[in-house]
């Protein structure tokens, strides 16, 4: 956070990879809006669209880390605004569990985030990505003994 990351100017050769699972109705739309309003953010994120954030099995998050992700975001609709009534409540519960689990496994908490991003929050989407890239730049790659 202290470090100002400029996407144009790489400070290190470390190029973190972020997987963002975005729900179709809110956060994917938020990412769309970031585009429509031409908000510039780092290229490190790869969005995987799911219908609901509640679709994201905790195993997907673990698998993503195992496959080499440096950070994972699960993004859904704001509480009480879920397209599927309460799918995001399940996301919230799993998020709490996953955060603890990953910490025990030796992963820094900055590497996994549950975010509520509305379709109107293009700015928030861009900021969430920027912040995570900044934080990951500080952390560096996942240490070998940390994972698995």
């Amino acid at each position: 956070m202290e470090k100002e990351a400029d996407p144009g100017e790489e400070q290190s050769t470390y190029d973190p990879k972020i997987i963002a699972f975005c729900c179709n109705w809110c956060s994917y739309a938020g990412a769309d809006l970031a585009g429509t309003t031409r908000l510039q953010y780092p290229t490190n994120v790869r969005i995987i669209r799911v219908m609901c954030s509640g679709r994201v099995d905790p195993a997907f998050v673990l698998k993503a880390f195992a496959l080499g992700a440096d950070g994972v975001i699960v993004a859904g609709c704001h509480p009480s605004d879920c397209h599927y009534i309460n799918g995001n409540e399940k996301t919230a519960m799993r998020g709490t569990f996953l955060t603890e689990f990953l910490e025990e496994a030796g992963l820094e908490p900055q590497r996994f985030k549950v975010e509520w991003i509305a379709g109107s929050e293009g700015r928030k989407f861009a900021d969430v990505v920027k912040r995570m890239v900044d934080e990951l730049q500080v952390l560096g790659p996942i240490s070998e003994e940390g994972e698995q």
Partner: peptide, 10 residues
């Protein structure tokens, strides 16, 4: 939306 418009400078 997820690429050309948000990475216009690179």
């Amino acid at each position: 939306e997820h690429c050309s418009w948000v990475h216009m400078k690179d």
